[in-house]
Design a protein around this nucleic acid. Structure first.
Lengths: 250, 250
DNA sequence: ATAGCCTATGCGCATCCTGTGCGTCTCCTT
DNA sequence: AAGGAGACGCACAGGATGCGCATAGGCTAT
């Protein structure tokens, strides 16, 4: 990837890649006792070009942070040994300011977790979609000094998305999106001009435990079209037998 | 191949060959319990100039990866001993980040396959065409750090193909292709100036279980001509009794 | 009660392939 | 050298398939 010609990169990746201040890759520690889930998240983050270490319990987590000095931590609340919130506490008292993204089951959504965002941390409820985890992590990292600055605003042609305020506009006109529509559009806007298969979209935007068919993607694409493509020349294009593509109208 | 002069190589292969960072050939492990299919794929990949090892079950697969350190793995889901997805999991737990291309029957495309592309892995449904397998593998490898840089854009004369955005242009003018037309043109563009027989094309572009006649190739060549050769001097040439050739107009 | 997420169903049409027929090149025969 | 038969390549038309889309409706969480 290092020496890849700018032109080829640029064309597909209009958005700059998030890196540390010195340009080296973002580092993340993923903590979950369920091996397969930790691996899933880890692979998803590596796909972003980030460096990832995994840990299976609180002890390993603390050690991993000490050694690896990550830019953020993905931390399951339920751990076999030390409670996730206690891990956070110990990290803080040891002087680590690294932001933490918690993973928590929806029903056990503790009141204590709700107060996390005040401290600069954040949480995501299981089951989650990978895009959401990545987006939350980018948000956390962006708000700290560890990363090269990056705006929270995405642009594709005259289409704008502010990931922080959840605002979407096309040519100044505001667009109301549901949560799922927003996630889908974000994925498309992060990969402009690139043809994304329904399987890819399903895997990235929908939760890992979603058993349904790929036809939901068609449905939500049609929703987006009604809200976006009606405001100007079409931007969402079907590549029959392959997938969908978002690009600026010529 | 060994003693072949560089010039002869160059003439036939205008596109840079995908290699590892040190210039040595890409290494692949192919896992399928059906011997003939594993051999078919292996031969196809060797033809790309890659190093290939085959394995017939999960145990052998794990061992082969340990010893051979491939840049990617082609892995059948249905294996006699260990399930393909379990093989993936074991590889990940053992710390192998090697990307995996799964082979799966279309009807048994079960939910477990979901989540694969999120981690950077991918899959192809049986029956498949060799070109598709090779293209997917190149995509997987290109996205990892193990390979020397390669762009997703092919050029032959004023004809351009972007494999990521599925964009095809001749002299700036956009060309719409169907999936099969695209596959065929990709094969031609990867082998410019080289005369490809109908049998070769059939073997590479169409599925291995395709029973039809070679006349489909003629048909699709005629489609491509209508879309490409009408935009300038002809680039697709018939070598009667031998095959077809794509080359830049002088 | 409402908004949002998803499933189910049916339809239209792009795409893929087969079949047929015709023109032309090749090569064999005389 | 001329003629002819067969092979080869190409054009065109028609039919089957399945992909993508629209619509309706049920379920759930707020």
């Amino acid at each position: 990837m290092v020496g890849m010609t700018d032109t080829a990169q640029q064309k597909l990746r209009a958005q700059p890649r998030l890196t540390r201040q010195d340009g080296s890759p973002i580092r993340i520690v993923v903590v979950d006792d369920e091996q397969s889930l930790a691996d899933l998240v880890a692979m998803g983050l590596k796909y972003e070009g980030w460096d990832v270490k995994t840990a299976a319990n609180g002890q390993q987590a603390l050690q991993a942070v000490r050694e690896f000095r990550p830019d953020a931590v993905v931390l399951d609340i339920m751990l076999p040994d030390i409670d996730g919130l206690t891990v956070l506490q110990r990290l803080r008292s040891a002087g680590f300011d690294v932001p933490v993204l918690f993973l928590t089951a929806k029903d056990s959504l503790d009141d204590r977790v709700a107060g996390l965002t005040a401290g600069g941390d954040d949480y995501v409820t299981k089951p989650f979609g990978l895009e959401e985890v990545v987006a939350r992590l980018r948000g956390l990292i962006r708000r700290t000094a560890t990363a090269a600055e990056e705006s929270s605003v995405l642009w594709v042609g005259d289409l704008m998305m502010d990931e922080d305020s959840y605002e979407v506009r096309r040519g100044g006109k505001q667009i109301d999106l549901t949560a799922t529509e927003f996630e889908l559009l974000r994925y498309l806007m992060r990969n402009p001009r690139r043809v994304l298969s329904k399987a890819q979209i399903l895997d990235r935007v929908w939760s890992y435990d979603f058993g349904g068919r790929a036809s939901v993607v068609e449905l939500y694409i049609s929703y987006l079209r009604k809200k976006i493509d009606t405001l100007g020349p079409p931007m969402i294009h079907t590549v029959r037998g392959v997938g969908y593509q978002l690009r600026a109208a010529e």
